[in-house]
Design a protein around this nucleic acid. Structure first.
Length: 573
DNA sequence: GCCGTTTTCGGCCCGACTGTTTTCAGTCG
């Protein structure tokens, strides 16, 4: 069992305990353990009991549950809870505005067991009239069910990548020599992925049996000599295709997509008297093979430069590839610093020194410590006095970590009316201010637009953090006029963030591209709340690459002095 | 269920907002 699978079971136990109305601190213990294990750097299933107990938040009981899961693949306690509530009831908790109490009440009174049950009850008007429910609540529930339906069957990019990687590892045990290449939306780096497509170059048909024997396979959707599909635990569909070496490039090109990109490329092939399919590029008149072993060969034969997978969305890349004007997109190695992270001073899991040490180990040249401001009371946000004192502690660490500079910043809340949560006087004393929205998400567009514009006008705002507030597969972006906001940040020299939290990836690719085209500076930051999360920069880079972003567009690719000179507070004439 | 130079019990970040109420329960982060 990998760490994510273990973490998922513990998380489900927490959810079920919550629905059952169990002890809140016990629930929290399971929840924090789930979070810790999900990103733990070692394979947790390989650890023995004392090693497990040395992990913070894992005690006697949780260590035993983890050992049980590692050894048997299941856990009696989890099963016992699932006998009280069907597993589909957990989906209800993911609905915006529906929590454990509501789920328990709906289950007890209307025998609601799934999202479908709830939708039917809401449509029949059975919710209003129940304790604590009115017409508004019923409408809100229906709306969030609709929001969810849009995303059904999709998964976060990072989860998909991890699942694909574990599948590849598993298949390699059965055939060490086969080359396994994940393609599809995963290779294109989309923020969410529908299914997992893996090419097996030069593999033997026995590989199909191996796939089907994977312990996470719930159902075999189809099995043939060259293609098999399975449904994995967690709702992933995975397709494995055997490809002969001479078709390697053609298959990669074909199965990486996107569909729209491929249509455009095939159209180009037809114009030139070729036929392009997953086996190769062929001349129409005599069916002779022109290319197919490599993607480069195919694109070259079509008079194009090779196109980075992230760009293959038919957003002008085919034309640019023909003209030789494709961008040299940013890579992870281009980034020198990280300008958004939290510590135990507010809601981070690791303290200032630990974060600095980890950043140094990762080779960052500079980091900004940006803990929360006072409006986020539940995160123990900083008031002005604490903000200034915390900044002093951050600056005092400079010199302690070779080749790492620490900047004292804050992630300051944008209040409902657009004022900032701390005074200008306080913000002026810091090195960087990231301004973000964490409350009142449901304002209508005019009000929300005014709110953000007002915040941007504050002279001490350097960066707009996770600008659209979306949470992938959970919450739609805030409603506001993005174009007006981009005009304003452009005028005021404010930087827009690409936030690397895997469920945010905010800005998204198309907004980031629009920003880049307007010359708006970007920053790619982790928003890490723990040491482990500091390595998350790759996901933001993925978004940036899809947005045609080049190293020069991103301020944290610069050496520290140049980066600081680009911050709004240091740009005043 | 975890944790502990206040350690084997008794703590465990908690305020804002919404929709339902007539003083509050539930959700969010």
């Amino acid at each position: 069992m990998d760490n994510r699978a273990l973490s998922q079971v513990l998380g489900e136990i927490a959810d079920l305990l919550e629905i059952r109305g169990d002890n809140a601190f016990k629930i929290r213990a399971y929840r924090t353990a789930a979070e810790t294990l999900a990103t733990w750097p070692q394979a947790v299933a390989q650890l023995n009991e004392p090693q497990l107990r040395s992990i913070p938040g894992i005690g006697k009981d949780l260590a035993a549950r983890v050992r049980e899961l590692a050894e048997t693949g299941t856990c009696a306690y989890h099963k016992e809870l699932l006998e009280q509530f069907p597993p589909t009831i957990l989906d209800l908790l993911r609905l915006q505005g529906v929590g454990p109490k509501t789920v328990a009440m709906l289950h007890a009174t209307l025998n609601v067991k799934s999202i479908d049950d709830l939708a039917a009850a809401a449509k029949a008007g059975k919710l209003k009239g129940l304790k604590g429910m009115g017409a508004k609540k019923e409408a809100q529930i229906l709306a969030s069910i609709e929001e969810r339906a849009k995303d059904s069957g999709r998964h976060l990019l990072s989860d998909t990548a991890a699942t694909a990687a574990s599948l590849v590892d598993f298949l390699h045990v059965h055939d060490r020599d086969v080359e396994l290449i994940p393609v599809g939306s995963l290779r294109r780096g989309r923020d969410t992925c529908g299914d997992i497509d893996i090419l097996a170059v030069g593999g033997q048909p026995g590989l199909m049996d191996a796939l089907i024997s994977h312990p996470h396979v719930e159902r075999v959707l189809g099995q043939g000599d060259t293609k098999s599909s399975v449904l994995l635990r967690g709702g992933y569909q995975a397709d494995l295709r055997l490809v002969p070496p001479e078709s390697r490039g053609a298959a990669m090109q074909y199965f990486t997509g996107s569909k729209a990109h491929n249509i455009n490329v095939r159209d180009r092939a037809v114009q030139l008297g070729f036929k392009l399919n997953e086996y190769g590029l062929f001349r129409v008149d005599d069916d002779s093979r022109v290319a197919g072993e490599t993607e480069e060969g195919i694109y070259r034969a079509l008079g194009m430069d090779w196109i980075e997978p992230e760009l293959r969305e038919n957003r002008g890349e085919v034309e640019a590839a023909r003209a030789g004007t494709l961008p040299k997109v940013i890579t992870l190695a281009d980034l020198r610093g990280d300008l958004h992270m939290h510590t135990t001073e507010t809601d981070g899991k690791d303290d200032l020194e630990a974060m600095a040490q980890a950043a140094q180990r990762l080779g960052r040249e500079y980091i900004a410590i940006t803990d929360h401001s006072q409006a986020l009371a539940m995160a123990n946000g900083l008031d002005e006095k604490r903000a200034v004192a915390h900044a002093a502690r951050v600056r005092a660490l400079n010199g302690r970590f070779a080749n790492l500079t620490l900047l004292a910043g804050i992630e300051c809340d944008i209040l409902s009316d657009g004022r900032l949560d701390l005074s200008d006087d306080c913000l002026a004393q810091l090195d960087i201010v990231v301004a973000s929205i964490h409350s009142n998400f449901s304002q209508e567009s005019p009000q929300m637009t005014d709110r953000i514009l007002r915040a941007i006008e504050n002279p001490w705002v350097d960066v707009l953090g996770h600008p659209t507030g979306r949470r992938l597969l959970q919450r739609d972006p805030l409603k506001f006029d993005m174009s007006a906001v981009m005009d304003s940040v452009s005028r005021h020299g404010v930087t827009l963030e690409i936030n690397c939290q895997v469920e945010r990836l905010d800005l998204n690719d198309s907004h980031a591209r629009a920003a880049r085209e307007r010359g708006i500076p970007l920053v790619i930051s982790t928003d890490a709340h723990s040491v482990n999360a500091l390595s998350r920069l790759q996901w933001g880079v993925q978004v940036a690459r899809r947005a045609w972003v080049q190293a020069g567009d991103v301020i944290n690719t610069r050496p520290i002095d140049e980066m600081r000179a680009r911050l709004r507070r240091n740009r005043r004439a």
